[in-house]
Amino acid sequence: MKTLTTVEALRAALWHEMRRDRRVILLGEDIGVYGGAFGVTRGLLDEFGPERVINTPISEMSFTGAAIGAALAGLRPVVEIMFMDFITLAMDPLVNWAAKLRYVYDRACPLVVRTPAGGGRGYGPTHSQCFESWFFHVPGLWIAVPSTPADAAGLLRTAIRTENPVLFVEHKRLYGRKGGVSDRLPPVPFGSARIVRKGKDLTLAAWSWMVAEAEEAAQRLAEEGIEAEVLDLRTLVPLDLERLAESVRRTHRLMIVEEGVRSGGAAAEVAARVGESVFEYLDAPIQRVTTPEIPIPASPSLERAAIPNSERIVREAFRLMREFS
């Protein structure tokens, strides 16, 4: 066991997979000498050379498309989109190629698209967004949304090994966060949620950075005598509905915390599925804590008010417990 930041854990996972499998290549803007905008690929150019760590022009649409072509031709590309906000430019190859290849042609597409998402750093409306919900709507893509260094490394290793195209969401606020990671960086399976904290009064389901906020909220709620169970979904596709339903059957209340905006968010889909499967166990309507329907403002004071945090989760949890006790 050692302590690593998420950046170090991701880098270690890339390093191990590149050592293990010569077919793994990296593509992205400024991932070479610069090591990527957040330093995840730092040092990999020296280790693996420019044939496998490929610095691309600023051409998101076409280097993502090219990665799909390379995957079809036998490589296992890992693409970095510098900010998730720019994935808009790579939507077409991901949605109309990568996600269709298995179903239509029965072909493998071993592609990983890594991308930093989320706000909280004052980067403004076009550098702070969470778009995983859009891809939730596209059958054929796996979606990883890790919340710890160990899961980031473990899920990335699985992502690189699967034959499915994977959207791999890395929250910017997680990058500097430290956590324990086993020396051998064990792969983590997709579709398996993790119980972060046990509780009996309500379930807080979250992913990515929001797990940290939910954990902090649960701590505070515990001081007030409310035992919240915190569930980290870890992947949205496949979704571990079983563990979620099992938790709700015990706690009878579900609050889903999502950093993305409310309408059409992933939380809405999760809520619907839980409602469909364990409605009779619920003592309260399923709640969502999300960003309101606005672009993420740059001003730190507005951004803090817009993005869900532990205080808001605590407040909402109190309200829920009060109204439906």
């Binding site: 980067y123 403004g124 409306p125 076009t126 403002p297 740059a298 004071s301 507005l302």
Partner: peptide, 14 residues
């Protein structure tokens, strides 16, 4: 990030 800014603090540097 102030109200009197060009984008009322919503846009920032970019």
């Amino acid at each position: 990030g102030r109200e009197t800014g060009y984008s009322r603090g919503r846009g920032g540097s970019q």
